[in-house]
Design a protein around this nucleic acid. Structure first.
Lengths: 337, 337
DNA sequence: CTGTTAGCGCTTTCAA
DNA sequence: TTGAAAGCGCTAACAG
């Protein structure tokens, strides 16, 4: 492999001058710059990042840590964030983590290896933050999860109010006359988000004086079509008089609708279904999904802006709530008396 | 940050012994191992990968290079590949590349930085391979793209026959009596895959002696719901007597169906639509998509097996074609005479 | 503007 | 079984 030394030798300059050119420093004569760039191109030289980051004491990098590759809402947010960061003097670096990874552990490792200026967390478990976030010294923003209760002064957050949004979804079903409502969602004891949304549902039921038996009315699933499909089957078995379902994500809603249709049950004529997230697929599905639309562009924009305030001006970490929107779609119908 | 030196000092052993323990070498006394592991845990020590890879002459890593985060077929394949590699003595590392990145350039950089044993390319442009793949010295497999014509002896391939598969899709539409067929796909001059699939369509038309005017009958789009939606609108404007559409991906098919329905056109009663890929969403959509199902599990399995043959036994690079399956779904109906 | 020098944290000989 | 020492390729003072 060709190294910076080779380039130095071939160009007749020293390694440091080559390094300067590679990093676009201005304290290099145009002649040297030109000559070195020529040799670099000729040899197809690519600097070794390991060596670079090993030595480098800081970078212009913003890390975007995405937990869950398959999350379509995150995909939209990431794209928007990348677009925004790219047009600043910082460089976005997207890193995808497995659902089972500890995002905070990874953040610690990455901060120490890459020395980023800031980190944006897409998805994440508050438990992991409580345990170790103190070791992350880099300004960070928790996106789509509230971080106020965590109380770290280098951790801001930008999120939809999951409790309120779920409450609103169930309110809508109740307003349409539904009383026998099923819930499909993530396991509240593992997924904080699911727990929040579940609480929202309960608030709505209580407000309307409706009894809800979670043994019967709730069925747990991971956030996939297939799991939701089975959860819906499960729900049908345990409840013979359901008229509506709240699914904690649009993907789940679609899995549920498929399960219903496969049993000859029409949506929304026989059973209404409302989802959560407002991913683009929701609009392309048949029927168009009723859902709680998270404003992904605004989530992205505010996250970046707040991170930059932390990075550039050492501003205080704020916790911002982004309003959601109830999209009525076509998958919910009123109960006919 | 705590480094290997700190661990050495605290444990009373030398840096080399610590390094041995960290890398699970067997030439360490159980006593030393135990003591060092205790200190490592206590200090929450994580080795710096930059330093590690900088020095390390080889690793047990298999790199999975995925071009296109949003590709749902790739998501399925990646998951399967990861699962397979994890249960061997190798470590899978998934790296996502932007659609605009040069995957071969990245492969060169990564080989040089990470010293992997092998690389699996998901997606990629033959032009990039022609230009620079010679510089990749690591055994590789091109997944979902044919690599036979490229003629590199360290590049195998495992793919669906795109030409044949597209031909089969159009054959099916013709068999159902359709004669006015529109095509939505990627730009054949940029996307090799799209070009292949387009050729397949042409073969079918020629075989059946059907004239096809690509100015009218073809509309280009990127592989997204939205682009396909507009491509479909476009197609409708230019053709008033369409009875069927071949979309080069399931995502495109869904975008197209939405566009049709939004104009009051029913699928499949008024116009039939067939997709390509066989992603899980195809089964969950309404109507269930007619599509060409790529056997993603088999693609994944054979890719890994073939790569291991290259790595472990320096076997010759083979080029395997994986059979596809025509799924009839519900989105294609015969023409009623 | 340019070169010399001293490491970054780790792995890997080589000796002991 | 262990340790000392020599770098991996690069950046970042510092001196000129």
């Amino acid at each position: 492999m060709v190294t910076i030394k080779d380039i130095a030798r071939e160009s007749g300059y020293s390694v440091s001058t080559v390094s300067r050119v590679l990093n676009n420093r201005r304290d290099v004569s145009p002649v040297a710059k030109k000559k070195i760039e020529k040799v670099v191109a000729e040899y197809n030289f690519v600097p070794n990042n390991n060596a670079k980051h090993l030595k480098q004491s800081s970078s212009q990098t913003i890390i975007i840590l995405v937990k869950g590759t398959g999350n379509m809402l995150f995909a939209d947010i990431v794209e928007e964030i990348q677009y925004m960061v790219e047009r600043t003097r910082y460089t976005p670096v997207v890193t995808y983590l497995d659902e089972n990874d500890d995002e905070v552990k990874q953040a610690i490792r990455i901060s120490w290896e890459r020395k980023p200026l800031g980190i944006l967390f897409l998805g994440g478990n508050p438990a992991n933050f409580k345990r170790q976030f103190a070791q992350v010294e880099v300004p960070s923003v928790l996106v789509t999860n509230q971080g106020k209760d965590l109380g770290f002064d280098n951790l801001a957050s930008v999120a939809t109010d999951d409790v309120l949004a779920a409450e609103c979804a169930v309110d809508y079903l109740l307003e349409q006359g539904h009383r026998k409502i099923g819930i499909i969602g993530g396991d509240p004891s593992f997924s904080y988000t699911s727990m929040q949304r579940f609480c929202g549902c309960m608030k709505s039921f209580e407000k309307h004086n409706i009894a809800f038996d979670s043994d019967h009315g709730f069925s747990a699933a991971r956030f996939s079509f297939e799991d939701a499909y089975h959860a819906m089957e499960n729900l049908l078995k345990k409840n013979h008089d359901l008229t509506a379902v709240f699914a904690m994500s649009d993907v789940m809603a679609i899995g549920a609708i498929r399960a219903l249709r496969d049993q000859g049950i029409d949506v929304p004529k026989d059973i209404s279904v409302i989802g959560f997230d407002g991913i683009s697929l929701a609009d392309y599905y048949n029927p168009k999904l009723a859902t709680i639309k998270q404003q992904y562009k605004l989530l992205a924009r505010r996250s970046v802006e707040i991170l930059f305030h932390l990075v550039d001006f050492q501003m205080e970490a704020v916790h911002e709530v982004i309003p959601f929107e109830l999209v009525k779609g076509e998958s919910v119908a009123p109960i006919q008396p």
